[in-house]
Amino acid sequence: MARSSVKFKDTVAAYESLSAEAAKGEFAPVYLLMGEESYFIDALSRQLASTILTEAEQAFNQITVYGRDTEAGQVVNLCRQMPMMGSREVIVVKEAQQMRGLDKLALYTAKPSPTTVLVICHKEKTVDKRSQLYKTCLSGGRVLESVRPRDYEIGSWLTQHVAARGCTIDRKALAMLTDHLGTDLSKIANELTKLLVSLPEGARRIADTDIERHIGISKDYNNFELCRAVARQDAARALTIAAHFARNPKEHPLLVTMLALFSQFRELFLLNYLRWQSRRKGVPMPGDGELMRLLRLNNPYALADLKEAAAAWDNRRVFAVLGLLREYDAKSKGLGAGGATDGELLRELLLKIFTP
């Protein structure tokens, strides 16, 4: 099967569009919600299940089934029955990827009942786009393809997610949260919900102290602070943070730290290259907006810090550091580590970075 051309930003846009339609009371007869990222599938299916029918109508006309326990023919029969004491019925199929004979649903989706809304939640992978099921859902209903974000896409999504709730989040707090939770959108959204509930009444700004207090991530010992210390060539501070990481290896996986450092030096390398190219060709440097896009940064403060750091890191040195990061990434996976712990590997790596 051909690789999907859908990007994370396309998923976000499609989800927001479908969510807005549902909020206005505009519903399609069939929804196919599919893909590896479960967050958008769960969020949209919950919204549809709670808004299409009133609470009183849901008791009679809303049925949820699970793919593992159901066959396609049973779902088709449910969809074709008339609603009781109402004008619509809602059939939600969860874990549809486990259903036997899933493709047979195309017999129904080709000509869905005008009084039924069928919501198919197909996680872990997409439905074959060559299949009749996909084609009929696309032509007569709505399809959401939910793809997982890359690490550099989390920051901008989370910033927008917070803004939609009437709040802002500081750059350091953002980095602390994404470093700690990775790219698991469901986990991030759950932690954020708990965090917003815990904020003082009237508070509209999430700071690093809030992350530390309510989620338990240290505001002084984290990958954001380590990267900042390295960029500023503050060896003492960087080694102090590394020592804290060594004492708490489960909370600070070396792989995550390596990724944070690699991202920073990749950005430094690209920024220095753009400056060199500008001087060589005698053309202006890209503006800040274009630089943020090229460097995959999510706010101007991050760009300002990067510009300041770039002055102290020429590209020969940056290239050498990138080589060290690749070497120690291999060691962290057991290749030539000689039995060293993750904490020892990080300290050794930092000492080599700070030794020109």
Score class of each variant (00 low, 15 high):
K24V: 10
H122L: 04
Q233I: 04
T11M: 07
A20P: 09
C167P: 03
A304F: 08
L33W: 02
R266K: 14
A304V: 10
F40K: 00
P284Q: 01
L18R: 03
F8P: 07
L291D: 02
G334P: 04
N223I: 07
S19G: 10
G287K: 14
A260P: 03
E36A: 13
A175E: 11
K219V: 07
I188F: 00
G339W: 02
G141S: 10
D69G: 11
A49Y: 03
Y108V: 01
G323F: 06
K194I: 08
K352W: 03
V65G: 08
I215F: 06
S139P: 09
H252D: 08
Y273K: 12
Q47H: 14
S146Q: 06
R204D: 15
K94A: 10
P29A: 00
V75H: 09
A43G: 06
A163I: 01
V283G: 10
I91G: 00
R237M: 11
R213Q: 09
V321K: 01
E26V: 12
D42V: 13
Y66D: 07
T126W: 00
L239Y: 08
K104P: 00
L349W: 05
I217P: 08
V119S: 02
P83S: 15
S332I: 11
L185A: 03
A20H: 05
G166A: 13
K111M: 09
I52Y: 06
V12Q: 06
D42K: 13
Y273T: 14
A229Q: 02
K281T: 10
V6M: 04
A207I: 09
E124Q: 09
V147P: 08
T183H: 02
L291S: 04
L270I: 15
A340P: 07
R293S: 14
A320G: 15
R228F: 03
K194D: 01
W276M: 14
I63K: 15
S278K: 02
N299S: 11
P284N: 05
S87M: 10
G287I: 14
L18N: 05
E37V: 08
F269Q: 14
R165P: 02
E95I: 13
S131I: 00
Y328G: 00
G282H: 05
A312T: 12
S50C: 06
L185N: 03
K123S: 12
T54L: 03
H122P: 09
A173P: 00
A72N: 01
R326C: 10
Y134V: 07
S156A: 11
L144S: 03
A238C: 08
T115Q: 12
L18K: 02
G334E: 04
Y39A: 03
N248Y: 13
T109R: 03
L105G: 08
L345G: 01
